[in-house]
């Protein structure tokens, strides 16, 4: 960029429960639809020195969306801490 972006926000939308387990690690958890009863989890690793997290619970009111996702989804917002002109970020998503 020719000038630093003051703010970059990266969104991840999830239907899972979001657990901020430790700095740099998020655990997404949800029940399985299948019958074995064990919750299913996905881990998201990010660089916590560069991002601050915000969680937005998006309440669903539309019947079509509620039919799929039930009452709410979560928007995870990774907000850059410092202005950025050139950078590389990596995020790992693992079971």
């Amino acid at each position: 960029m020719t000038e630093a972006a003051q703010q970059i926000d990266l969104t991840l939308m999830t239907v899972c429960q979001v657990n901020l387990e430790s700095p740099g690690k998020i655990v997404l958890e949800r029940d399985r639809n299948s019958s074995d009863g064990m919750p299913i989890t996905l881990k998201v690793f990010y660089n916590d020195s560069k991002f601050q997290l915000e969680l937005e619970n998006v309440k669903l009111t539309d019947k079509q969306l509620k039919a799929v996702w039930k009452n709410e989804v979560t928007r995870i917002l990774f907000r850059t801490i410092a202005p950025t002109a050139r950078d590389t970020w990596q995020m790992k998503i693992v079971p």
């Binding site: 939308m13 997404l28 949800r30 299913i40 079509q64 989804v73 998503i93």
Partner: peptide, 17 residues
């Protein structure tokens, strides 16, 4: 979007009515 074991985890919300 990301699914795990056939379940949606990171999603595209889709569209309202």
């Amino acid at each position: 979007i990301v699914y795990l074991d056939g379940e949606p985890m990171i999603i595209d919300v889709g569209v309202e009515a």
